[in-house]
Write a protein that binds this DNA or RNA. Structure first.
Lengths: 217, 217
DNA sequence: TAGATTGTTAATCGATTAACAATC
DNA sequence: TAGATTGTTAATCGATTAACAATC
């Protein structure tokens, strides 16, 4: 009830605020003004204040923002005060990279299992978390409360597997396959298209190379 | 000279167009109208036409767009008609995942070497590409024409290594470290912040869970 | 109290969508 | 030629920035 439609642009900036506030907190900084934060983050102070005020007044006139309080509040907004059970489908390098990234655990994302079709993973565990075979997936989902599934499998299988996940109650998919997923509206999809990202990089490099408009920007 | 400042929003959509056109091409589709493409991609036809016209007229009235031609032209815009030598700093799971992703090669991104500090990688090769020790990095950059470096190392080392890369002529960094890099203007940085992405997902899941505004959207 | 800085309204800027004349 | 569909201008919408009154 408290908050209406927050724009995607604002949401996408929250994790970055959270990251900077975490650094400040670690550095022992107690309070910060939107102006000082704006200099660090290279955004306008106005944007910071506007963004935060979408969720309520976290600051105090004449004082600024209490770093610890703001950090905690943004954490709550992002849902980091709750735990989220997740699984990884695809135990290849990328799946393992995610499984090994312990910082996720600290933010409340609990990896419950990995899955793969390849029998060479039979009995293997990563950070103590077992890799199961894909034919165990449906039963596993029935017996465990899993919220999020990371999809680190080839494009060719992604759509099919995503459908199975959704049929069995998964509400959010973190999609690393190089394809878009067309799923029901109540399923949240966040895609990380690495090749798209590399192409964007390539575009920018190519522009620089041409050497036009050096003066602009 | 031909094109002025193209907005970031437009650029970020190009790889997606490229992806869909590639699929159409594979499916043997010869031509497509902005309207048909808009239905497939779930964007407006107007946006497609606007986006493409930033780079010139690729279509033909009454006919639409030739799939193969448009695919090729967008490829050129993205710099995929040239090859780009790149290296990966950090031979962990994520570095290896990138090294193993052969599709990059097909788009013209040639992996020349990986680098790591860990001596257990001494003499190891991935897809035939050697992992070298970090102390060989500077010499390697002097002797090879490397354009892009992917940074798949922990946050704590990222800033320092990025500086070394830039000092030695790297013009583009594909940054996977969980930190922002503050580099000279002529260096292109494309960051993939996986934890930011996961937090965005978390936000959206948490919103759904609260069950408000089911009717909206 | 005076100074600082927020929260918030108003102004500007940019991006998306709509409309349609040009043209294949 | 008639029909289709682009390229492009104009209208709308949304996001960012500026300004300032409220208030700590």
């Amino acid at each position: 009830m408290e908050q209406r439609k927050i724009s995607r642009a604002v949401i996408s900036r929250l994790p970055r605020y959270y990251r900077y506030l975490g650094d400040l907190l670690e550095a022992g900084v107690e309070r910060i003004s939107s102006n000082d934060l704006s200099k660090k983050m290279q955004v306008t102070a106005s944007q910071i204040r506007q963004d935060l005020n979408n969720f309520g007044g976290f600051g105090q006139q004449g004082y600024g923002y209490n770093v610890k309080y703001l950090y905690t509040e943004i954490g709550k907004i992002l849902g980091l005060d709750k735990t989220h059970n997740f699984i990884i489908i695809g135990a290849g390098n990328l799946g393992q990279a995610l499984a090994n990234y312990a910082a996720f655990e600290r933010s409340g994302f609990i990896l419950k299992s990995l899955f793969d079709v390849n029998p060479r993973f039979e009995g293997v565990a990563i950070r103590g978390i077992p890799v199961r075979m894909m034919d165990e997936l449906v039963d596993f989902l029935k017996e465990n409360e899993i919220e999020i599934a990371a999809l680190t499998i080839p494009k060719s299988k992604a759509v099919e597997v995503a459908d199975i996940l959704v049929e069995n109650g998964i509400k959010a998919i973190w999609n690393f396959a190089h394809t878009d997923l067309d799923l029901p509206d109540d399923v949240v999809v966040e895609s990380v298209h690495l090749s798209d990202s590399l192409m964007t990089l390539s575009y920018n490099v190519s522009q620089r190379r041409e050497g036009l408009t050096e003066d602009e920007e």
